[in-house]
């Protein structure tokens, strides 16, 4: 599985189309990643139609059936209010996926813009921004998120803001270092000589070159974001009852932990499957974009 092939990222007069087909061909070879991709597509459909397919309402109290084990009527059993866990876990998909994508998308855009400009222009602006980002980077992700939630108060929206803030430096650094490399490429220098404006160079010539790295990081960040949301909710700092967020379900399950195994198992499995798929997809994308990596990682 070792390709003696040019790295498609290097920005010479590389045709977009061939790059894309190369990428697709390489990606198809990553069988686990393809499987992960299809599982994720399935999860997306679940996220979109969860309220339609869920057999019960997420807040349908049924006090007579509380804390029951899995059965045909309740595939995943019920919780302390007799709500159907299967429906709740199902609907949790929408929350986790949307938080994951929204936060990472915002962080990617902000981070990339910061990275592009600081990397391209350099100088004092670059120095100051990078110092500040270093300082943000000095906080471990979850701890920064906890601190931010302590200011803003618990809640999903605030947890999302916290995640955006700690994701930004990752992208800013990544894009900045790519920009630094590309800035001196023959291609960009040529464009400069032809009198292209800075903005044009940045968005037309440098951004596409940065794109592959960002995509790989994106997939990995989404899984990180989902995990952090769940962790915050687990600590009581993210989603609030009765939101069926997976981390919160796990947190609530702790009270009944010893008598009801099913309550803790299923939401946890949901997190594992989702995070696993994003990680595998991210690995696959990385290898497809940079086949030299194939046998590393």
């Amino acid at each position: 599985m070792f390709f003696k092939k040019k790295n498609p990222m290097v920005t010479e007069e590389n045709d977009m189309d061939t790059r894309w087909s190369d990428f697709l061909r390489n990606f198809k070879k990553q069988k686990t990643a393809v499987v992960a991709f299809f599982v994720l597509v399935l999860l997306f459909f679940i996220a979109i139609f969860c309220y339609k397919i869920a057999p019960y309402g997420i807040n349908e109290y049924n006090y007579a059936e509380k804390l029951q084990g899995p059965s045909m009527a309740h595939l995943f059993g019920t919780d302390e209010f007799g709500r159907d866990l299967f429906s709740r876990v199902l609907c949790g998909t929408r929350i986790s996926l949307s938080i994951g994508f929204i936060t990472v998308t915002i962080a990617t855009v902000i981070g990339s813009v910061i990275g592009l400009f600081t990397g391209y222009y350099g100088g004092i602006l670059d120095g100051i921004t990078m110092r500040i980002l270093d300082a943000v980077y000095a906080f471990p992700g979850l701890i920064l998120a906890i601190a931010i939630v302590a200011i803003l108060g618990p809640g999903l929206a605030n947890a999302a803001i916290a995640i955006v803030i700690f994701c930004i430096p990752t992208y800013a650094r990544l894009v900045r270092s790519c920009t630094l490399q590309l800035k001196n490429s023959v291609y960009v220098r040529a464009a400069k000589c032809l009198g292209a404006s800075d903005l044009r160079i940045l968005f037309k010539h440098i951004l596409p070159g940065v794109f592959p790295d960002v995509i790989v990081q994106y997939s990995l960040s989404v899984s990180g974001s989902i995990m952090t949301t769940a962790s915050l909710s687990f600590l009581g700092m993210g989603a609030m009852s009765p939101t069926p967020e997976w981390g919160l379900l796990l947190s609530n399950s702790r009270t009944y932990f010893y008598s009801c195994w099913h309550y803790a198992v299923f939401p946890g499995l949901a997190i594992v499957i989702t995070v696993l798929c994003f990680n595998l997809l991210g690995d696959g994308l990385r290898m497809a974009l940079d086949p030299k990596l194939n046998d590393r990682a």
Binding site: S231, R254, Y258, G268, V272, V275, L276
Partner: peptide, 21 residues
């Protein structure tokens, strides 16, 4: 791969449930 996808709090809960209880 699993080690990177399993939330540590859940792993801990499962470990307690099976190994301790």
């Amino acid at each position: 791969v699993l080690g990177q996808a399993v939330p540590d709090f859940w792993l801990g809960m499962m470990a307690i449930m099976i190994l301790c209880v």
